[in-house]
Simulated scan of single mutants.
Amino acid sequence: MATTNVERDEIIRRAVMRRPDDFLNVTVHLWERLATELITLIGENGFQSLYVRSVHLTRTTYPWIVEGNPTHATEKRFAGLRNSLADYDIEIASAANRLLLTTLVDIIALLIGDILMTRILCTAWTNDASDIAGKELQE
């Protein structure tokens, strides 16, 4: 069965809202994990180009999103995005983040296909769900 945009959107929505109490840290961590997976496939320059394009497209709805510099080291790669989102309440910030993620994922899905893109999302984020669940059980 082919994956649809609706299914990918749901994966993104669940991941972004996994821990609303720690939204900014979760958001940056999701982006870092996704970037790591995508860079192995499309390289640093490919990721940077597609990320910048996604930010540009997302700015039509959320003009305050800052591009940042996705070529920086992992811990600083999404500092601009984090700072942009920090200025808004969680509902607006999460909607902007979901749109940015969806835009990037949709662009890449057009290039590599829906099934592979969904598999990349699951690979990037599934371990996070297990890690978080394990930590919550220990608490």
Score class of each variant (00 low, 15 high):
1 M>D: 11
2 A>S: 11
3 T>C: 04
6 V>R: 08
7 E>N: 01
7 E>R: 03
8 R>K: 14
8 R>H: 02
9 D>V: 00
10 E>G: 03
11 I>D: 06
12 I>A: 06
13 R>N: 13
13 R>I: 03
13 R>E: 14
14 R>K: 13
21 D>R: 11
21 D>K: 10
22 D>P: 00
23 F>R: 07
25 N>S: 11
26 V>T: 14
26 V>A: 05
31 W>D: 01
32 E>H: 05
32 E>Y: 00
34 L>V: 05
34 L>K: 00
38 L>V: 08
39 I>K: 14
44 E>Q: 11
45 N>P: 01
46 G>E: 08
47 F>Y: 15
48 Q>P: 00
49 S>D: 15
49 S>P: 00
52 V>E: 15
52 V>Y: 06
53 R>G: 04
53 R>A: 15
57 L>R: 14
57 L>M: 10
57 L>E: 15
59 R>Y: 05
61 T>K: 12
63 P>M: 12
64 W>E: 08
66 V>I: 11
66 V>L: 10
67 E>Q: 13
70 P>D: 06
71 T>P: 03
71 T>M: 07
72 H>T: 07
72 H>P: 00
72 H>Q: 13
74 T>G: 02
75 E>M: 07
77 R>D: 06
78 F>T: 03
78 F>D: 06
80 G>C: 07
81 L>P: 07
84 S>F: 01
84 S>M: 01
85 L>D: 03
85 L>Q: 00
87 D>W: 01
87 D>T: 12
87 D>G: 05
88 Y>H: 15
90 I>K: 09
91 E>Q: 09
91 E>N: 09
91 E>R: 09
92 I>N: 05
93 A>N: 01
93 A>P: 00
94 S>E: 06
94 S>A: 13
95 A>P: 00
95 A>R: 10
97 N>Q: 13
98 R>D: 09
98 R>C: 12
100 L>P: 01
103 T>F: 05
103 T>M: 08
104 L>R: 05
104 L>N: 06
106 D>H: 12
106 D>I: 01
106 D>V: 04
107 I>Y: 07
108 I>Q: 03
110 L>D: 15
110 L>M: 12
113 G>A: 06
113 G>E: 04
113 G>W: 00
114 D>A: 11
114 D>N: 14
116 L>K: 12
116 L>Q: 12
116 L>F: 08
117 M>P: 00
118 T>K: 09
119 R>N: 14
120 I>V: 15
121 L>M: 12
124 A>H: 08
125 W>G: 07
126 T>N: 12
130 S>E: 10
130 S>M: 08
130 S>L: 11
131 D>C: 05
134 G>Y: 06
134 G>T: 14
135 K>S: 10
138 Q>I: 11
139 E>Q: 14
139 E>H: 12
139 E>R: 14
